[in-house]
Design a protein around this nucleic acid. Sequence first.
RNA 1: GCGGACGUGGCGGAAUGGUAGACGCAACGGACUUAAAAUCCGUUGGGCUAAAAGCCCGUGAGGGUUCGAGUCCCUCCGUCCGCACCA
Length: 831
Amino acid sequence: GRIHMGHVRNYTMGDVVARFKRAMGHAVLHPMGWDAFGMPAENAAMAGKVHPKKWTYENIAAMKKQLQSMGLSLDWAREVATCDPAYYKHQQKMFLDFLKAGLVAREYRKVNWDPVDMTVLANEQVIDGRGWRSGALVEQRDLYQWVFKISDYAEELLEALDTLDRWPDKVRLMQKNWIGRSEGLLVRFMLDAATVPNGESELEIFTTRPDTLFGAKFMAIAPDHPLATAAAAKNPKLAAFIEECKRIGTSQEAIDTAEKMGFDTGIRAVHPLDANWKLPVYVANFILMDYGTGAIFGCPAHDQRDLDFVNKYGLGNTPVVLPPGQDPKTFVVTDVAYDGDGTMFNSKNDVVDLNGMTPQKAFDTIANLLAATTRGNRPVGQRQVNYRLRDWGISRQRYWGCPIPIIHCDACGVVPVPAADLPVKLPDDVTFDKPGNPLDRHPTWKHVKCPSCGGEARRETDTMDTFVDSSWYFARFTDPWDADAPTTPDVANRWLPVDQYIGGIEHAILHLLYSRFFTRAMKKTGHLNIDEPFAGLFTQGMVVHETYRLKSGDWVMPADITIEGMGDQRRAKLTATGEPVEIGSIEKMSKSKKNTVDPDDIIAAYGADTARWFMLSDSPPERDVIWTEEGVQGAWRFVQRLWRLVGEVSEVSGPATRPAEFGAEALKVRKAAHRALANVSDDIARLRFNRCVAHIYEFANALSEAIGSVETAPGPDLAWALREAGDILVRLFAPMMPHLAEECWAVLGHDSLVATEAWPEVEPALLIENTITLPVQINGKKRADVTVARDATEDEIVAAVLALDAVQKALDGKSPKKVIVVPQRIVNVVA
RNA sequence: GCGGACGUGGCGGAAUGGUAGACGCAACGGACUUAAAAUCCGUUGGGCUAAAAGCCCGUGAGGGUUCGAGUCCCUCCGUCCGCACCA
C-alpha cells in the first residue's frame, strides 16, 4: 500500500527538516519546518492571536540570531526554506498551463487587507475564526488578485464527495457545507422610474424561496451594491449610513452581535406578480455583495433575518405558508419566522393562485411562470444554482512563496514568462526592515524586458499561497526526478490516487479541497489522469498536554515544575523556586502555552520506541493523546518486560523442525500466539492501534505464564511452540517498536532484519475451540454459563441449559415461554 | 442561530443489538530486599453480607422498541468541533 503520512508543505520539506535536524542535533517528530522557519508570521499569528507584523520581524530577527549561533546565515535558511527552484519551476509551468486552460483569472477583487502589515489576508484567515481578525486590523480594499477558478468545479467537487467512501463523514460534510450549494431563482424586479437615481430600470435578486413572493414586504441591497452607490451619490445621509456599515462590517464582534440595520433609499420596486404592488428598497447591513446578486426580497414571515428587520422598522409581515395543523384565520408570526413545510395560503391574485400547494409546488409554479414571462427578450425569472464556494485567491504580498511567473507590460498587458526562463527565482538580497512586500521594494528584481515586445516591463511581485505548494506534492512525489515536467503522467497514474492519506482534521477543508481541485486541473492540463487524489483519508488526533501557569499569567514548561498529590489534591510548583503553579486545561501542545515536551528529553529518558508505543497505546488514533509522565513510564516498563521475555524465550525455545504432535501446553501457547496474530492483523488493517497494543499485552502475559510454568527443560513440542510464539510476538510489535524488535529478533537467533520479514501467517485451525462456553441469560440477565461442543445442535444446547441449577431454580418447575439460542453467542431463557 | 460528534470505573479507554468495564495507568495488599527501586503474585464500579455464595443497582437524565440496549428511536441536560447575516 501507499501511505502518505502527514501533510508536507512541499518537496523541499524533507531537506529543510533533515538539515535543521543535523545542524541543531534536534529530533524532529513532525515535518513542521516550513511553518516554523519559513513563515513565522502566518504560523505565529494563527497560533497566538498576535498581530503578524510583530511576529514577522521579531521572529526573523530571532531566527537569524539562532542560525548565526549555529554558524549559519539567514541566506542559508532562505536558500533551504523558501524555494526549491526545481519544484517551483514545475509549479510555475503548471500555473501557466492552468492559465492557458482558463483555470486562472486575474480579478479586481475586494480583499481583506491588513493595514499595518500592508498584506492581503487570505480568505480563510478572515473568516476562519482564528485569532487576529479584529476589526481594527482589517480593512477592505479593492485589489487585483490572481485566482484559481475552483468555483467552476463546485458541482463536481460536491458530487464526487459521494465517491469518497473511505473518507470520514465528518470531513465530507464539512466540504459539502463549505461548497454550500443552494437552488433558487434569479428574479428581475422592475424599478419605479420616478424613484431611481440615474434611470436604473430593474433590480435583480436571488432567492431560494420564490414560493413566498406573496409575503414580500421590502427589498434589500448590499451597502456596496451599485444601486446603493448610485443612490448614495445623491443622498448624503445614505452615504453616511453606507460608510458606517463598511466600518462595522469588517469587525467580527459586530457580526456576532449583529443588529439588523437598514436605510430606505426611497427607491421603489415593482412586485413581479402585481404591477401595482410597490416595495421599498433598503440598503441593509446584512446583505452580502459576494453572494447571489447582492440583493434580496424580504419575506419576513418565513425568514428570521427579514423578520428581525421588519420588526425593527415596522414593516409588518404576511405569512404565506401555513404550518400543518394551524388555522389560517388565527395563524400569525411575531418573533419567530416559520421556515418549515406546510400549505400555501394568502397567495392568490389575477396572475397566479398558489393557495393549497406545497411550498415545493409553489416554487416550481413561480419558477415556470417567471421563466415564461419575458421583459426585453429576457425571462423575468431564471433558475439558478448558487455556491458559497468562492474562487481561490492565491496572490500573497510576501517574500516566502513561489513567484507568479507573469510579466506586466504597458503595451502587451499580462504576459506569461516564457518556459525557457523558468523558474522565476526569488532574489537573495531582500530586506525585511519595513512592512510590505520585499519583492515590490527590491531595487532591480521586478524590472525586466517584456518577452513579447522587448519593452520595459515589470514582474508580478505577488507570490503564490503556500497551499499551492501542498496541493500537488503527492503527484510530484511519484517521480521527483523528472526534470522536464511536473509529473510523468504514466508514473503518476500508476501510483495515484494515494491509498491512505493520514493528516490532521485541521486540513479537512482547505488543503483537501484545494488538492481535489488541483487534481482536476492537472487532469484537464494533461499532467494526471485520475479523478481524486486521496482514496482513503484518516484524520489523526493531536498530542495534548496539561498547561501550567504562574500567578503572573506566564506559562511554564512541564519540565520546570514538580507535581505533588493525587486527584483533587494535585498541586504543582516551580521546581526551582517552589512558587505555586496553577494546573490548567489540557490543550494541544504549542510553543505559546509552553505545554510541550521536548522530543530530545523523551528520547534521552525512554527512547523513541517507548514514545511510539505510548502514543499508540493510549488512545484511538483519531482521538487526542494526553501526554502523561505515568503513561510513558508504563510503556517504558513494558519495553523492559518484552526484552526480558524475549530473552527467556530464547533460552527455552527449541528445535527448528516442527514436531508432528503438540501436547496440551504447547497447543495452549500456539493458540495464544495465533489468536494474538489474528487480532493484531485485523486491528492494524482498521488502524485500531490501541487495540493492537492490548492484544500484544495479553499475548505477552500468556507467554510469560507459559514460560513461568516450565519447570525443567520443556519437551520438543512446547519448545518449538515457544520459539514460534517468540517469533510471532516480535513481528507483531515490530511496526510499533522497530528498534527493540530488531534487537529481539537477533536475540531469537535470526540473522535477518525483522523489517524485511514477511508478516506471519495465521493457522486458522488454532483459532477454533472444540468446546464453547455460552453465557446463559434468564429474562435477559446473565445467570450461568453452559459449556457445549462447538458443533452442538440447538436442541442439545437447550437441553443442557434447562438442566442447569440456576435455570431449574428460576423456572420453578414451569416450562419456559421461550428459549433463544444465538449460535456461538448466547442463550436466553424467557421464563 | 445552523450543522455534526460525543457522554462508560479514580484515569486513558474495551464492548458486529448478546457475559459492561478487555488492555493499560493509578491505587491498595503481599512476596523478594538490611532498605529503597526494579521485579513477581494478588485485589480494585457501587451496595446488602463478618466472609463466601448469592442477590440488588449501575454506561449523563427520562421514556420507547426488543427475548435482550452502552449500542437503535424520541425528549431533555452537558461537553466538544465545524459553519456562521449565504437570501
